[in-house]
Computed example of a mutant assay.
Amino acid sequence: MSEAKGPIVVCVSPDMAVRERVLRRLDGVGPVLSCADLAELRVMLFPEPPSGQDRGAGPPETPVSYGELVVDPPGHLVTWRGRPLALTRTERRLLTRLVTPPVRLWSYERLFAAVWGGAYLGDTAILHSAIKRLRRKLRLLSGGPRVLTVRGVGYRLVLGSDDSGG
Rank of each mutant, 00 (worst) to 15 (best):
M1A: 14
E3N: 12
A4I: 15
K5H: 11
G6R: 15
P7E: 09
S13D: 11
D15F: 13
D15P: 04
A17Y: 07
A17R: 14
V18A: 10
E20C: 15
R21S: 11
V22H: 02
L23F: 06
R24P: 01
R24W: 09
R24V: 15
R24T: 15
R24C: 12
R25P: 02
R25A: 15
L26C: 13
V29N: 05
V32W: 04
L33W: 11
S34T: 12
C35F: 05
C35L: 07
D37I: 04
D37N: 13
D37A: 10
L38I: 14
A39R: 14
E40F: 07
L41C: 05
R42Q: 05
M44R: 15
L45W: 08
P47Y: 10
P50Y: 06
S51E: 05
G52P: 02
Q53N: 11
D54F: 01
R55S: 01
G56A: 01
G56N: 02
G58L: 04
P59E: 01
P60M: 05
E61I: 07
T62A: 10
T62F: 08
T62Y: 10
T62E: 06
P63T: 07
P63D: 02
Y66E: 04
G67A: 06
D72P: 03
P73A: 01
P73L: 00
G75Y: 06
G75A: 15
H76Y: 08
L77T: 13
V78W: 03
T79E: 07
R81M: 12
R81Y: 05
G82A: 13
P84E: 06
P84D: 07
L87R: 07
L87Q: 08
R89D: 13
T90V: 14
T90S: 03
T90M: 01
R92H: 11
R92N: 04
R93C: 08
R93M: 11
L94V: 07
L94C: 03
L95Y: 03
L95E: 01
L95R: 02
L98M: 08
L98R: 03
L98H: 08
V99I: 09
T100Y: 04
P102I: 05
P102H: 05
P102R: 12
V103E: 03
R104K: 14
L105G: 03
Y108F: 14
R110G: 01
R110N: 02
L111A: 00
L111D: 00
L111C: 02
A113K: 15
A113Y: 01
V115K: 00
W116F: 14
A119V: 14
Y120H: 10
G122C: 05
T124R: 14
A125W: 13
I126D: 09
L127V: 11
H128V: 10
S129D: 11
S129Y: 09
A130F: 00
A130D: 06
A130W: 00
I131T: 09
I131N: 02
K132E: 06
R133M: 14
R135T: 01
R136I: 02
L138M: 15
L138R: 10
L140Y: 06
L141F: 12
L141C: 09
L141W: 11
S142T: 15
G143Y: 10
P145I: 01
R146A: 13
R146H: 08
R146S: 06
L148P: 02
T149A: 11
V150P: 00
R151K: 11
R151I: 06
G152F: 08
G152W: 05
G152N: 08
G152Q: 04
G152S: 10
V153L: 12
G154H: 00
Y155L: 04
R156K: 13
L157G: 02
L157F: 09
D162F: 13
D162C: 12
